[in-house]
Simulated assay, not measured.
Amino acid sequence: MRAAYASALNPDEPLRGLTVGDLPERATPDGWVPVEVRASSLNHHDLWSLRGVGLPADRLPMILGCDAAGVDPDGNEVVVFPVVEDKVDPRGFSIFSERHPGGIAERIAAPRENLIAKPAGVSFAEAACLPTAWLTAYHMLVTRGRIAEGGSVLVQGAGGGVATAAVAIGVALGKRVYATSREQWKRERISELGATALEPGARLPERVDVVIESVGEPTFDHSMKCAAPGARIVVCGATAGHKATIDLRRVFAMRIEILGSSMGTPDELAALLQLVADSTVRPVIDSTHPFSEAAKAFERLDAGEVFGKVVIDHLA
């Protein structure tokens, strides 16, 4: 079975451990279902895996890819929810490509309950963008951030998968969305999505009800200052530093909630798929690559200049 997999681990040059080739297919566990993959998408999780973060050498070779969409044995078009209950893992769960083979392959085996119906109006490429980054953004906005209670959102560091998804989803939900980026070309793309694009640290025209925070230390003080009374600052990462300084006086005086967040649920993935099917919002795709050029897709992600998701078309 052809696959893109980690054959070695290299903390400094992760792509040196990437192999695209044939691997023996593992037996499908009881209660699991094989899915013929039609499209998959990349996440920075894949690069961290190649560095050895969360993927020890004794699990190699490991097929990469958290996100996949395809067809089950009954001909149903499905999206694979990426989280698997795992009693061995200290977290109580694992993500495909950590303990179980991922989706950048001809087939992926998944628990039957992880297969979510793909609406007819959503392409395989679009569906493959949703399970990790877009689901994380949806969970941050809708569930943790309770965006229905507010009308405005600030997204810090737009350009990557989660932040760009948060911009697009916030606009689709009819909210006033502000987003920051250091790069002019990314701010132009943000504006095209319907948001107000700003430089990092810029003054907003209003204090917002929800802040989507994945940058961390460099932006957190700005996030605090932009938060309206009773606002929710939802944190899913700290890509630029995790030791932010917080003025606790502002937290209690403004009644600000600081909420941790990660991933989402199968029901939320189904709701997100329906939102995409029923509205004009579509996953932001940076580039699409045929499976034969999967290595180039990884190079594109590793270069750090992507806007949106990098997709692999398994039929091309």
Results as ranks from 00 to 15, higher is better:
Pro119Ser: 13
Pro101His: 15
Ile108Cys: 13
Asp46Val: 05
Arg91Met: 14
Leu64Asp: 03
Ala172Asn: 05
Ala133Glu: 09
Ala158Asn: 05
Leu60Phe: 00
Ser97Leu: 06
Ala125His: 07
Val79Pro: 04
His45Gly: 10
Gly102Lys: 14
Ala137Leu: 09
Asp72Thr: 12
Ala158Cys: 07
Glu36Val: 07
Lys118His: 06
Val71Ile: 15
Gly170Gln: 06
Pro131Leu: 12
Gly102Arg: 12
Val80Ala: 00
Ala165Lys: 09
Gly161Ile: 07
Ala168Pro: 01
Asp89Gly: 10
Met62Cys: 10
Phe93Thr: 10
Gly103Lys: 12
Val53Pro: 00
Val53Ala: 08
His45Cys: 05
Phe124Val: 09
Arg144Val: 14
Ser123Asp: 06
Ala137Tyr: 04
Ala117Tyr: 02
Arg146Lys: 13
Arg112Gln: 15
Ile169Val: 09
Tyr138Leu: 07
Asn76Gln: 11
Ser94Lys: 10
Ala163Ile: 02
Ala128Ile: 01
Val171Ala: 08
Ala128Trp: 03
Glu106Lys: 13
Leu64Lys: 09
Ala133Arg: 12
Met140His: 03
Leu130Asn: 05
Leu135Glu: 05
Met62Pro: 06
Ile169Gln: 06
Gly121Thr: 06
Ala166Gly: 04
Ile95Leu: 15
Met62Asn: 08
Val122Pro: 01
Asn43Gln: 07
Val37Lys: 07
Ala125Asn: 10
Ile95Lys: 09
Leu135Gly: 01
Trp134Val: 12
Ala127Trp: 07
Val35Ala: 00
Arg144Pro: 04
Ile147Gln: 01
Val171Thr: 03
Gly161Arg: 03
Pro56Arg: 09
Ala125Arg: 14
Gly159Leu: 03
Ala163Thr: 11
Val80Pro: 04
Met140Asn: 04
